[in-house]
Amino acid sequence: MADESKPQPQAPKHAIQTRGLNLWYGDFQALFDVDFDVRAGRVTGLIGPSGCGKSTLLRSINRIVERLGYVRTTGTIDVLGHDIFGANVELLQVRKQIGMVFQRPNPLPLSIRDNVLFGLRTHRDGDRKSRPSKEVEAQIVEESLRTVLLWDKVKDRLGEPAIRLSLEEQQKLCIARLLPVKPRVLLMDEPCSALDPDGTAAVEELIWSLKGDYTILIVTHNMAQARRATEECAFMLHGKLVEHTETAKMFVSPKNQSTADYIEGRYG
């Protein structure tokens, strides 16, 4: 990934590929031999009952799970064709290329503008001296906020603390602040579960508008949301990936009995 600003000559078909992924929290095994392919540019949902390992899988993909210290992983995870556990991998670059959105919106205690620019100022295009001019920064803020459909609401109060926004707007801002460093993959951990129905609809609409440009992986508890807002769906149970197929197929004719039982609400 020498120059991430230009599209790569042949974008790999799969943005994320895991092979034989096992993960332990201390003695507890949370993931069992997960082989998971996420196609580039699509919205993929990750569903399953609480404790099935879907958040763990999500958090392995930008290696944030390692921060806990007592985590052990075997197997491989390739993102855009590159092994993220490789010897030459800089963790901070992994986190830059793979943005993450949390269940509770977590804007930083800064102004709206500084939230959007935080990542950019952190990475500075990988060059110690490069410092974008005010005009460039203003342009990036506008683009990012337009992309998340927030610009018209906040353009006159970019200097206000981000915390004064509504939860829905905060969540959109949390997505917007990932964009200036041009990530390829966006991981979302139940991005709508703290929002009201209108906010949920708005954020789902936003996610839908981002597909194609970004590979999006969403963990969700909400079957209806998985059905509405994803193109592919993967079902996990007890740390194993049970079934992964087109969303339309999964909800109409699931292959696996446990998938069928879960999406019909018999457990979970």
């Binding site: 930008n62 944030i64 901070l92 986190r95 977590n106 205690p109 949390c174």
Partner: peptide, 25 residues
């Protein structure tokens, strides 16, 4: 803590997190 996690997830180092978010607050 979520402020720190937000920073780390964007690829900020510990020091960047401390200097820009933790210490000012």
């Amino acid at each position: 803590q979520p402020f720190r996690e937000a920073c780390w997830n964007m690829g900020a180092t510990r020091w960047q997190t401390i200097a820009r978010v933790v210490l000012p607050n």
